[in-house]
């Protein structure tokens, strides 16, 4: 960690103001989708961001490419504060950070040929000639494993996997430094997921990319990510290297997510008791007091209802925010993690 990070969020919060009911009194409710987030990503690194639906991971991803409103905190990109960048300066800066969306069926303009979709980033960020753009689009299509002649077609002529390749090509064609991939695999078949993941891997090496890879599937991202960050209800609960998180998870939520992943071995899978997290994720508009996870935590203590735990270091840049996992209180966490989570 000697180099300065490529992207760094400092106490970043994203808030959405809900509309007040027509006859309701009091101020309009504010949803803190992301709360006091501290996260830094090194150049060339792949950080996987995992968590349940609605935990704010997509919002954080969008905030990190400045498409979600930042309420508090700072966002540093390559040493520059881009928190308050606006208008034309922000638009120009966008060539350096791009996004890949979850659903390739809705992320491509249905009325535009593939060529125009891929040429658009080049047209708005470079002054290249049409001939140069044609060459680049062809090269990019080949780079993502598609036939260059596909450029003349429309999105509806392609399968989900092919569309996601096109969406990836659109993000990579301006040669950005940083790419936020928002659940890019979850709309695809399992067989296709591995191919696309491999493509992400290839492109990372070829174009020296840095990824924030958002996923709800912890098992899928381990082999691919350098570090894993686990998010719950707008806050980071645990972060560490992929190996640390898999072998030595500290936070009960991380343990639950790990235990929820099915095993590829059918005999193990048949006997496995799936530890379910009870209940739904609480509404981010009305988060529980104290530790936000305490309403569903199998090892919640009295203090968890009152005091929000701080991030604690466990060495090797492994951090977790849990009272029970904190070093002084580790004796409370002695039972086997799997047993902890049984209802």
């Amino acid at each position: 960690m000697t180099h300065p990070p490529l992207v760094e969020a400092r106490n970043l919060s994203v808030e959405f103001h809900m509309r007040r009911g027509l006859f309701s009194r009091g101020p309009a409710p504010v949803v803190q989708a992301v709360r006091n987030m501290n996260l830094s990503i090194q150049r060339g690194e792949t950080l996987a961001l995992v968590g349940e639906s609605g935990c704010g991971k997509s919002t954080l991803g969008r905030a990190m490419i400045r498409t979600a409103p930042i309420a508090h905190g700072e966002l540093i990109f390559d040493g520059k504060d881009i928190t308050t960048l606006a208008g034309e300066t922000l638009r120009r800066a966008r060539s350096r950070f791009q996004m890949i969306f979850q659903d390739p069926y809705s992320s491509l303009n249905p009325k535009a040929r593939i060529f125009d979709t891929l040429a658009e980033p080049l047209r708005v960020h470079t002054s290249e000639s049409t001939a140069q753009i044609r060459t680049k689009v062809s090269e990019m299509l080949e780079a993502v494993g598609l036939d260059p002649t596909f450029a003349a077609r429309y999105p509806h002529e392609f399968s989900g996997g092919q569309r996601q390749r096109i969406a990836i090509a659109r993000a990579v064609i301006v040669q950005p430094d940083f790419i936020v991939a928002d659940e890019p695999l979850s709309a695809l078949d399992v067989s296709m997921q591995l191919q696309i993941l491999k493509l992400f891997d290839d492109l990372r090496d070829r174009f020296s990319l840095t990824y924030l890879f958002i996923s709800h599937d912890l098992a899928r991202v381990f082999s691919f990510a350098d570090r894993v960050a686990v998010m719950y209800l707008g806050k980071l609960v645990e972060i560490g290297t992929a190996a640390e998180i898999t072998t030595n998870p500290r936070h009960p939520y991380t343990k639950a997510l790990l235990a929820a992943a099915p095993s590829p071995d059918p005999t193990i899978e048949a006997d496995r008791e799936v530890p379910m997290l009870s209940g739904d994720i609480p509404s981010p508009a009305f988060p529980p007091p104290g530790c936000r996870f305490h309403t569903r935590c199998p090892i919640a203590m009295e203090m968890c209802k009152r005091i929000d735990p701080e991030m604690t270091h466990f060495g090797n840049s492994h951090m977790a925010a849990c009272h029970a996992a904190a070093p002084g209180l580790s004796h409370l966490n002695t039972p086997e993690p799997e047993k902890d989570l049984l209802p």
Binding site: I65, T67, R91, R92, A93, R94, S95, Q98, M99, F101, Q102, D103, S106, S107, L108, N109, P110, E120, P121, V124, H125, A167, R170, A171, V174
Partner: peptide, 17 residues
């Protein structure tokens, strides 16, 4: 509200365009 509009914004396409 469609993703392809969000995608165009995040690509950096000027609003009028």
């Amino acid at each position: 509200t469609q993703d392809y509009v969000h995608a165009a914004i995040s690509v950096g396409v000027p609003t009028l365009r």
